[in-house]
Simulated assay, not measured.
Amino acid sequence: MRGADYTVSGDQLTLTASALTRLVGNRAYGVNATLHARFSAGVPWRIDVVTYDPPVLSNATGNTTSFAVPTQFRGDQLATMEARYADGSNAGPHDWTSFKEFDVAFAPDYTGNRITLTDTFFGAVDDGTRVTLTFHFWSGTTVTYHITRSGGSVTGVTASATRMG
């Protein structure tokens, strides 16, 4: 209800603290509520109210045909992934960009608590060279992870997380 739950000033929508408290409920990770902002023209905007903490990645070993980074998403969702070698050059397929193709080079598995790196990705990664992966999440958080391919084996180790905003 306008005034009690939100205000609009120019192009800024502000939700009241009491409305947000009601919308997030028990603050379980993930989407707690979905709002729809309606305008005089065009389609309504969908606004998800999300509770999250920075994702946590864990060390892993595997091979180039089935490697997964154990991931506690903690309510956040993966937006994209970058891959670079130590010298700053781009790693993986489509080496003209550091950003890798979603569902081709990598894919999140939210129910399985992991991010899978594909054999397509490893097919374009130099053997014996460390690759720095930067996972970008929709919250603005980035998490850095290091992988090294040695023949058909892969080792992954955690690096750091940076929370934005």
Rank of each mutant, 00 (worst) to 15 (best):
T132S: 11
R114K: 15
T132K: 10
V104D: 07
T134C: 09
N59H: 07
I115P: 03
V143R: 02
L57V: 12
S89G: 09
G123R: 05
S139Q: 10
T142K: 14
N113K: 10
V143K: 00
A107S: 09
A86C: 14
G112N: 10
F121G: 00
D109K: 13
T118F: 00
F135C: 04
R130K: 10
G112P: 02
T97H: 10
T65W: 05
S98G: 04
S153N: 10
F137Y: 11
D53T: 13
A60D: 00
F135K: 01
T116M: 06
P54D: 09
T116S: 12
F137K: 01
R149I: 03
Q72P: 04
T141V: 15
Q77M: 14
H146R: 12
K100M: 08
R74S: 14
T129C: 02
F99N: 05
T142Y: 09
F137W: 09
V157L: 15
G128K: 05
S139D: 15
A68P: 00
S98D: 13
A107D: 01
F67D: 01
F73D: 04
P93D: 13
D127E: 09
T111L: 11
S153W: 05
V157T: 14
S58C: 07
L133W: 02
F106T: 01
E101N: 12
T148D: 04
R149N: 06
D103S: 12
P54E: 05
D87E: 15
R130T: 14
H146D: 14
P55W: 06
F106S: 04
Q77A: 13
F121C: 03
S139M: 07
A91M: 04
S150M: 11
A60E: 00
D126M: 13
G128R: 02
R114A: 12
T61C: 05
Q72R: 13
T116Y: 09
D126L: 13
A124N: 07
Y145T: 03
L117Y: 05
L133M: 15
D95G: 07
G156T: 14
